[in-house]
């Protein structure tokens, strides 16, 4: 199918809706089609990866202080009109499990396997993003841009000594799976999720499962 065959407004709307439904079918809890102009790019967001310093900052090529700058992301987003925004929900007993942040920082697995479970949910977000991009390409949208959640080193290169692209400048080990996260690109996921009508809580190291509702891992594919 050529790009010209999907250029009518009706086709675009139908294709975006098909992509939204595909996200749901592949494991997203919610998915919405949004105008690309509703993607909130804010210079403060990337700083929250650095202040306080996230354990993955300086360790993953997609994460600040590396990765795309806010200006690059704004320019990228401005080239699109429509996007599919989705969330994968995670039980608070997993994402806000007691002492989980200590295990994350130490990069060791917890005895209750909450970290493995959480990692599985992150992999689901990366996977949905890639599936949507692949499907969009088959519809004729060849130049999509996909974003996932968190860093890609933990889910895909956890047992490797480091991010190969960052450490050596060579190619990424898993380009077919890896995407930058929305937040590493300065997208204000919290505000975007809240505006989509989704319940979203600030979950941090001091949270406990009872403190919050479920957690959200969000992804975005800029389609056309």
């Amino acid at each position: 199918m050529s790009v010209s065959s999907v250029s009518t407004e009706v086709d675009i709307k139908g294709n975006l809706e098909a992509l939204r439904k595909l996200a749901l079918a592949r494991g997203a809890h919610d998915a919405v089609v949004i105008p690309a102009s509703d993607v909130i790019v804010d210079p403060r967001v990337r700083l929250k990866c650095l202040i306080p310093l996230c354990y993955m900052a300086l360790r993953c090529d997609h994460c600040p202080p590396d990765g795309y700058s806010v200006e690059e992301v704004r320019e990228m987003v401005s080239r699109y009109q429509w996007a599919v925004f989705y969330r994968v929900t995670v039980k608070s007993t997993i994402i806000a499990a007691r002492n989980l942040s200590d295990y994350v920082s130490a990069r060791i697995f917890d005895p209750k396997a909450n970290l493995l479970n959480l990692g599985g949910n992150y992999i689901l977000v990366f996977t949905i993003t890639k599936i949507l991009q692949k499907k969009a390409a088959s519809m004729g949208y060849a130049k999509t841009s996909g974003f996932a959640a968190g860093n890609c080193r933990d889910p895909f290169c956890h047992f490797q000594p480091g991010c190969r692209k960052l450490m050596t400048g060579n190619n990424c080990r898993h380009p077919e799976l890896s995407s930058p996260s929305m937040e590493s690109c300065g997208m204000d996921v919290y505000s975007m999720a809240a505006r989509a009508g989704w319940d979203i809580y600030p979950i941090g190291g001091r949270c406990e499962p009872e403190s919050v509702g479920r957690g959200n891992l969000c992804g975005l594919v800029l389609v056309t």
């Binding site: 319940d199 809580y201 600030p202 949270c207 406990e208």
Partner: peptide
């Protein structure tokens, strides 16, 4: 006291 005071992010 965090466990009692985590607020949902409003639109």
């Amino acid at each position: 006291d965090v466990p009692c005071n985590v607020k949902k992010i409003p639109p």
